[in-house]
Design a protein around this nucleic acid. Structure first.
Length: 216
DNA sequence: AAAACGGGGGC
DNA sequence: GCCCCAGTTTT
């Protein structure tokens, strides 16, 4: 039934989903690993499509390249640039608060620890972990809805909340997979292992999966 | 624990 | 038109 083996699963995910899609921050990362840009992009990306986030971020970075630029830009202009991302009213507010919080608490530098990142406006656990992983190449497990759903579906964890999933994965997921896990699982979750009607008949790891909660 | 925030894309 | 969505904050 459930022959779940994380090495087999990761090998299959690498084989099938490396090229499919990467998080928007990875697209930005091609150009820079600048923690400021990674942080801003990641805040903008919350529950927003990558393509939309990417367009807004690129436009924004033409005018705003660092904390000082962000401090100077007016809320109106900022909003006009990022209006196409979802929740832009809240995100405009967060970005306007960001420079003062960074300067007062962290000496104007982007912090790399989770507890520090969580003090920034608009940054929750998912964003904090993603910034830590992408901008600083430090161990982090980024749990979004895909990771939470799929790890439970596999039977790899049995958890109620994304936070519990993160804590459990910290214990059982080999650290060599931490940086890539989210990208692969998200690509897998978008293309095959969708919330409803997953394409189990096409799944390369069908025999690894407990299919908990899957209606076929 | 539940509601609120929001525009974009698939069908 | 309707349904879904790579979260975080506020009530």
């Amino acid at each position: 039934m459930n022959n779940f083996d994380i090495d087999t699963v990761m090998a299959e995910l690498e084989k099938h989903f490396t090229q499919v899609r990467t998080p928007v921050v990875d697209q930005i990362q091609i150009q820079t690993k600048d923690p400021f840009k990674v942080l801003v992009t990641t805040i903008l990306s919350a529950r927003t499509k990558d393509e939309t986030t990417s367009q807004a971020a690129k436009k924004l970075f033409e005018k705003v390249k660092n904390i000082d630029d962000l401090e100077k830009i007016s809320a109106e202009e900022l909003d006009s640039i990022i209006h196409q991302v979802g929740f832009h009213n809240a995100k405009t507010k967060y970005l306007k608060q960001l420079p003062s919080v960074l300067k007062e608490k962290f000496g104007g530098k982007i912090p790399s620890e989770i507890d520090e990142l969580l003090q920034l406006p608009g940054v929750g656990r998912k964003t904090a972990n993603l910034v830590r992983a992408i901008a600083f190449s430090l161990p982090a497990i980024c749990v979004d809805v895909h990771v939470h759903r799929i790890c439970n579906r596999w039977g790899y964890v049995q958890t109620k909340t994304p936070y519990e999933t993160e804590m459990e994965l910290r214990k059982i997921l080999p650290e060599r997979y931490w940086l890539t896990f989210n990208s692969y699982v998200v690509a897998f979750g978008q293309n095959l292992c969708t919330p409803r009607k997953p394409k189990c008949n096409q799944c390369p790891i069908y025999n690894q999966c407990a299919r908990i909660g899957v209606k076929e």
